[in-house]
Design a protein around this nucleic acid. Structure first.
Length: 575
RNA sequence: CGGGAUGUAGCGCAGCUUGGUAGCGCACCUCGCUUGGGACGAGGGGGUCGCAGGUUCAAAUCCUGUCAUCCCGACCA
């Protein structure tokens, strides 16, 4: 490809609405343009990158026996009603009507469609196991699209779905995908960490995310990882060993004491001269429009995703003061926020974090303003509610799996794998005839890779102040050949010659034949991020060209033939 | 959904306070000159000032509405 005819416009200035570096560089480098919030046109350079990632994904998926298909992006409401998700998916599901008023949705994911397909097509255990995947545009009407391709509304995703006769089969399918994913990202030049995570709205039990640890501030997930072992988890799912703390209060008998103006844990601890570790904190949440109380040790914080799961709710939020007063009224109390406690509360779900279990002679709200119960004990003064892990794990706490400590970093989730089990097959009545002649629901798994997000993650991971430094495996082109001046016949001749030889050898090469000054060509080459640059310029007087590696900045002076040879080798090394 | 901000040429911005018919840099086109890290000179094209109302002799500027975009938050009693 000649640069003069390549469809690319680089920008000198950073578009003002681009915040993260991948967004900025992809706009500046002429890789994409925004059409609407979270919706982008992928220009030729970007499309080449995306196709490369897609092809790596295809190869590794196929190696594990998965088969590619393509499902529709517009899906009928009926399917979503069968799975129950029409009601629970929320506003992220882009709903629309056709001319007859029939309700449809743009597919944010394809569990419904694939499950319906399996229901219709797979009759017997003899047809199992099977793993089907597609690479396709998804649409999620994100509450707040941002970060360019990292959180768009329309994006490209690979989604695979496995069907098995039993859990053991699912385990095998899951392992295969975990293996494939690790290889895929490595081949894209990205090191990933497989972290356990919440399974969210998709449902199911076990799930892992593949995170690119960016080592910068970009990335929207907090990842806690052990400094000693391989433990890593999304902060919404991480567990930890809490640091040693006092669990026993100095109040030896239960009594109600005055604690004026102690609305926060800090104020209460200060007033009673006790550590916050012997206070049982009560938080009122609204879970799917019903109130619920969460108890946790005073010095700890609730992880809302965990709480949401413990409550079996689709959506939770902290209650307002008004809602708390209303709840108090219903239970015959009138306490203000800050003095809430579990005792005497009826018609409200109460869950407790594991951190409160071992509290003795502790302090807790008693639903009377300016008063607390001190010296309380479970089973004596207050019934111990059902226990869950609803605590936010924090940096510095102990690793749950070894004696190491937890560290935190930002991560970009580029892939995820879920064990779905029978959630969809049961709901949608998708069954097969098992070996024993009985009808059984499929045991399913689903496995996603954000193709466009992976490209953005690569930019986040590999760039400098001049531009992108693509790993060669996913770079739009392998190398740019730059004659310093298009007026110089010798330079043009040598450059064209190298260009043609590389092309014949199958190297993806761009010849910068533009009538631009050298500075412009170099700046563009760095910005676009060609992994290699071969320059025909002043060194030609010695019969040499420059061979420059973008990643390291290393420059070598070689004869044109040596440069061609070296370039061919560089490409061979990764294919 | 709440809070903050911004919409003026492809991109980055000024002009708005104090209304008088739109400007700068980059990019683009032509010519000249230049050719190792985003040159220079001359000339040129391109904007119903987000949109819709209103006030006024006159609106980018003041008022109202609306749409869009970006940032922050979705928060621990």
């Amino acid at each position: 490809m000649k640069m003069s005819s390549l469809f690319v416009q680089t920008l000198r200035e950073v578009p003002s609405d681009a915040e993260v570096v991948s967004h900025q560089l992809l706009l500046r480098g002429g890789y994409m343009r925004k059409l609407a919030g979270g919706i982008y046109t992928y220009l030729p350079l970007m499309w080449r990158v995306l196709k490369k990632i897609e092809n790596i994904v295809r190869e590794e998926m196929d190696k594990e026996g998965a088969q590619e298909l393509l499902m529709p992006i517009v899906q009928p409401k009926e399917l979503w009603e069968q799975s129950g998700r029409w009601a629970v998916y929320g506003k992220e599901l882009m709903r629309l009507q056709d001319r007859h008023g029939k309700e449809m949705a743009l597919g944010p994911t394809h569990e419904e469609v694939i499950t319906a397909l399996a229901r219709d097509e797979i009759r017997s255990y003899r047809q199992l196991p099977v793993n089907l995947y597609q690479i396709q545009n998804k649409f999620r009407d994100e509450i707040r699209p941002r970060f360019g391709l990292l959180r768009g509304r329309e994006f490209i995703m690979k989604d695979a779905y496995s069907f098995d006769v039993d859990e053991a089969g699912l385990d095998i399918a899951y392992e295969k995908m975990a293996r494939a994913y690790t290889k895929i990202f490595l081949r894209c030049g990205l090191e990933t960490r497989m972290v356990r995570s919440d399974s969210g709205a998709i449902g199911g039990s076990v799930s892992h995310e593949f995170m690119v640890l960016t080592k910068t501030d970009s990335g929207e997930n907090d990842v806690l990882y052990c400094d000693k072992c391989s433990y890593a988890a999304n902060s919404n799912n991480a567990t930890s060993k809490m640091l040693p703390a006092e669990m026993t209060g100095r109040f030896e008998k239960a009594e109600i004491v005055d604690t004026p103006h102690t609305r926060t844990i800090e104020e209460l601890a200060e007033f009673l001269k006790i550590p916050s570790t012997i206070i049982c904190k009560a938080l009122v949440y609204i879970a799917d429009s019903k109130p619920a109380i969460a108890l946790i040790r005073g010095d700890q914080n609730v992880e809302e995703i965990k709480l949401q799961n413990a409550l079996g709710a689709n959506e939770i939020r902290i209650a307002t003061s008004e809602e708390i007063l209303e709840l108090m009224n219903k239970n015959g109390f009138s306490a203000e926020p800050g003095f809430i406690g579990p005792k005497g509360m009826k018609n409200v779900k109460i869950v407790a974090d594991l951190s409160v279990k071992d509290l003795k002679n502790f302090v807790v709200g008693i639903n009377q303003t300016d008063k607390h119960l001190v010296g309380a004990n479970w089973g004596v003064d207050i019934e111990l509610p059902e226990l869950f892990d609803i605590r936010l794990a924090q940096v510095g706490e102990g690793c749950p799996e070894c004696d190491g400590h937890l560290m935190i970093t930002k991560g970009i989730e580029v892939g995820n794998i879920f064990k779905l089990g029978t959630k969809y097959s049961k709901a949608m009545n998708a069954t097969f005839t098992a070996e024993d002649g009985k009808e059984k629901p499929f045991i399913m798994g689903c496995y996603g890779i954000g193709i466009s997000r992976t490209a953005a993650a690569a930019v986040e991971r590999y760039h400098d102040e001049h531009g992108i430094k693509w790993p060669i495996q996913i770079a739009p082109y392998h190398v740019v050949v730059v004659p310093v001046s298009d007026q110089d016949e010798q330079q043009m001749k040598v450059a064209s010659d190298i260009y043609e030889k590389l092309q014949k050898a199958g190297v993806e090469v761009v010849l910068d034949d533009r009538a631009e000054r050298a500075g412009v060509k170099f700046k563009d080459a760095d910005l676009i991020g060609f992994p290699y640059r071969i320059t025909a310029g002043k060194t030609l007087s010695e019969g040499l060209v420059e061979f420059k590696i973008r990643e390291t900045g290393e420059v070598m002076k070689l004869t044109p033939d040596e440069a061609v040879e070296k370039m061919i080798e560089a490409v061979k090394a990764v294919s």
